[in-house]
C-alpha cells in the first residue's frame, strides 16, 4: 500500500504545483490545499503504515504491546492540518479582499506593489 500511497503523494504534489502556476488565484489556492494534502500523506506514509492499530496504550498497561502506528508523524500531521487550514483561510480572505478592490482573479493584475 505504501507504494500506492507514494504514487498518490506524487500525483497530489504534481496537481498542486500545476494548479499553483495557473493564472487564476482560485486555482492557486486550490493547489495550495492539494500541496498540503500531499505533504500530510507524505509524512504519514514515510512514518510507516500499520493497519488499524492507533497509538493508544490499552488501559492498565504502560506501553504499546502490539506494533502500532507511529504516534510522532501523527502529532506532526495533526498540527499541519490545522495550520494548513489557517493558511488557507488567510489566503482566501486575502483573495476575497483583493478581488473586491481589483475585480480580478488574475495574479498578473495584482502587481501594483512590485512596480
Amino acid at each position: 500500500m505504501s507504494t500506492l500511497l507514494a504514487i498518490v503523494v506524487g500525483c497530489l504534489y504534481a496537481a498542486g504545483v500545476y494548479m499553483m502556476l495557473r493564472r487564476s488565484l482560485f486555482k492557486l489556492i486550490l493547489g495550495l490545499v492539494f500541496l498540503s494534502h500531499g505533504a500530510n500523506l507524505l509524512i504519514f506514509t514515510v512514518g510507516g503504515l500499520t493497519r488499524g492499530r492507533p497509538p493508544v496504550v490499552p488501559p492498565g498497561a504502560t506501553g504499546l504491546a502490539v506494533p502500532s502506528a507511529d504516534p510522532l508523524p501523527q502529532a506532526l500531521i495533526l498540527t499541519a492540518i490545522v495550520i494548513g487550514f489557517a493558511v488557507l483561510a488567510f489566503s482566501l480572505a486575502l483573495f476575497h479582499r483583493g478581488y473586491q478592490t481589483f475585480g480580478s482573479d488574475d495574479p498578473d493584475d495584482l502587481k501594483v506593489s512590485d512596480q
Binding site: 503523494v9 504534489y13 504545483v17 500545476y18 502556476l21
Partner: peptide, 13 residues
C-alpha cells in the same frame, strides 16, 4: 515542472 516534482516526491516516499 509539476511532473518532475511529483516523481521526486514519490521517490522520496
Amino acid at each position: 515542472l509539476a511532473l518532475v516534482t511529483g516523481v521526486l516526491m514519490t521517490a522520496l516516499v
